[in-house]
């Protein structure tokens, strides 16, 4: 069975600004990968490459064994890659229900919409109470949940969550991660890009540590802790 996502030697840049230098990563079907590293290491760029937002300058991106290098983001989405970007990535001027409706695709049957919405509200009960509220008026945690619910409306093969804990209070982070756990247990592969190392490591089986646009370490999640502490806090002289 081919992995749900495979990056082969991906380099990427924003104009003259190079962000990735030959990154290779794999997420197995139903598997989970925590992508860690200090900010600026290129984690978000990996997430963007994996969902088609950034087209790599070299290397290739395979989704479910199919080469999608250079395809448009909506083609990735249709191939089953769901990307919840970092920050408040909801449509602020649409209501909660409209945010969810937007992503829904007819191929799942016309009657599927209400099912899909119900599923989303089951997964994120807070959203159910605020269906007709403008997404821009939600709290930070609710927006984060909505941004995940939004991409989960069409059951994806892979969920990419970019910094799901960013800017949230600890108790809300716990809730977000509970939802992520539920998603993962339902069989969806997840790629989590995180700074809040602990939560991500508890959730995922495998870990990749990124530094200066390259994979510096890759292995099982339970070995990652020491690597992380080492990577972020080696001082100049004892490094």
């Amino acid at each position: 069975m081919s992995p749900v996502l495979e990056l082969r030697g991906v380099s990427a840049s924003y104009g003259p600004f190079r962000a990735l230098f030959g990154v290779s990563l794999t997420v197995e079907a139903g598997g989970s990968l925590a992508l860690l590293g200090s900010n600026g290491a290129g984690k978000t760029t990996v997430a963007r490459v994996a969902s088609g937002l950034v087209v790599p300058t070299s290397g290739s991106v395979l989704v479910d064994g199919e080469d999608l290098t250079g395809a448009r983001p909506h083609q990735y989405a249709r191939a089953g890659v769901a990307h919840a970007p970092e920050g408040r990535s909801v449509f602020a001027t649409l209501t909660v229900a409209e945010n969810l409706r937007l992503s829904f695709r007819r191929t799942h049957g016309a009657s599927g919409l209400s099912c899909a919405l119900d599923r989303a509200y089951d997964l994120f009960p807070q959203l159910g109470n605020r269906r007709s509220q403008m997404a821009g008026t939600l709290s930070g945690g609710e927006q984060r949940m909505l941004s995940m619910a939004r991409v989960l409306v069409n059951p994806p093969k892979l969920l990419i969550a970019d910094e799901p804990s960013l800017g949230l209070a600890p108790i809300i982070i716990d809730e977000v991660y509970q939802s992520l756990r539920a998603i993962r247990e339902a069989g969806t592969a997840v790629l989590i890009v995180e700074q809040q190392v602990g939560h991500a490591l508890q959730l995922c089986d495998r870990t990749a540590v990124l530094g200066h646009g390259a994979v510096e370490w890759e292995g099982p999640a339970d070995e990652a802790t020491d690597v992380m502490v080492g990577q972020m806090f080696t001082t100049g002289e004892d490094g």
Partner: peptide
């Protein structure tokens, strides 16, 4: 700077709830 790098609060801010030195 050296003290900051060893400071528990600082590590927590960066690494979240990761138990440092586990």
């Amino acid at each position: 700077t050296k003290e900051m790098m060893a400071d528990a609060d600082v590590r927590r801010a960066y690494l979240g709830d990761l138990e440092v030195g586990r």
